[in-house]
């Protein structure tokens, strides 16, 4: 469990982000402690992905700050940060023109890792084994894999360099419940085993309960609720209550 006396690994301070007239984030404050697994939940269009992209530096907030280990993101060596970072994308985002092992080893072949082809392939096959895929998948192309297998390859790529920070964007989207369960368990195991700081965004409550130490709920551009996953079911916030129970009626407007 994270030590609250430490400097947060990731911190959002009063982050605002709009796209034209559409305000997406309206002053988001979030701390992610080292070794913590934070899951961000919220309805579609509430800014979960935008929050993730602001943390990554892909999007620049109009106001507010993103801090990495207490330092503003703009002052952090982005190369060094990204080298210690892994991400599982919603659709896998595997490179179609590369084989499975080349996808997994993509970063290993580049500086500062610069492994030889043989070493990189061996490491990729070991990571594939860690996510439950055999060596026979190594030379296949992503298009030859099922959705669940693609997610596993994406996961293997995310952990290929044993990063200290990992982001998971809708890790179970589009998977059947059994495969979703397998992926959730894998994420929990990997995060615990690697001691990594993890941020996951999801709609899937099974993922929340399996993966999270802490949960933050975004609504209307703000963090509506933030607390330990164990407190989620007893929390009195009506927005959180409606969301986690999937009720059509409540303060969150449902479009029918």
């Amino acid at each position: 469990m994270p030590d609250p006396s430490q400097t947060p690994k990731l911190q959002l301070v009063d982050v605002h982000k709009s796209f034209g007239p559409k305000r997406v984030l309206a002053g988001v404050n979030l701390d992610v402690m080292p070794g913590e697994s934070l899951v961000i939940i919220g309805g579609s269009g509430t800014g979960k992905s935008v929050t993730l992209k602001c943390m990554l530096g892909i999007l620049k907030p109009e106001k507010g700050q993103v801090l990495i280990d207490g330092a503003p993101l703009a002052e952090v060596d982005s190369e060094a940060f990204l080298n210690d970072f892994g991400m599982l994308f919603q659709g896998g985002a595997l490179f179609d023109s590369l084989t499975v092992w080349q996808n997994v080893a993509f970063r290993l072949r580049r500086k500062p890792f610069s492994l030889s082809k043989k070493e990189a392939r061996e490491r990729a096959i070991a990571k594939l084994a860690r996510v439950g895929l055999g060596a026979e998948t190594a030379d296949l192309f992503p298009a030859e894999l099922s959705g669940g297998m693609q997610k596993r390859v994406g996961l293997a790529r995310a952990i290929a360099t044993d990063p200290h920070v990992i982001f998971f964007d809708e890790p179970t989207a589009g998977l059947d419940p059994i495969m979703a369960g397998v992926i959730n368990d894998l994420i929990r195991e990997l995060v615990t085993e690697m001691g990594a700081t993890a941020v996951t965004i999801t709609h899937d409550m099974t993922t929340v309960r399996t993966v999270a130490d802490d949960v933050a709920m975004l609504h209307d551009g703000l963090v509506r609720w933030h607390g330990p996953v164990a407190d989620m079911d007893t929390a009195t916030d009506p927005y959180l209550d409606q969301f986690i129970h999937g009720r059509a009626t409540g303060p969150i407007a449902a479009i029918r």
Partner: peptide
């Protein structure tokens, strides 16, 4: 364009490329 739509370009950025 397909790489953009399927987030492969974002993935390249996150892989320090």
């Amino acid at each position: 364009g397909t790489m953009r739509v399927t987030e492969q370009i974002d993935a390249l950025t996150t892989l320090s490329t």
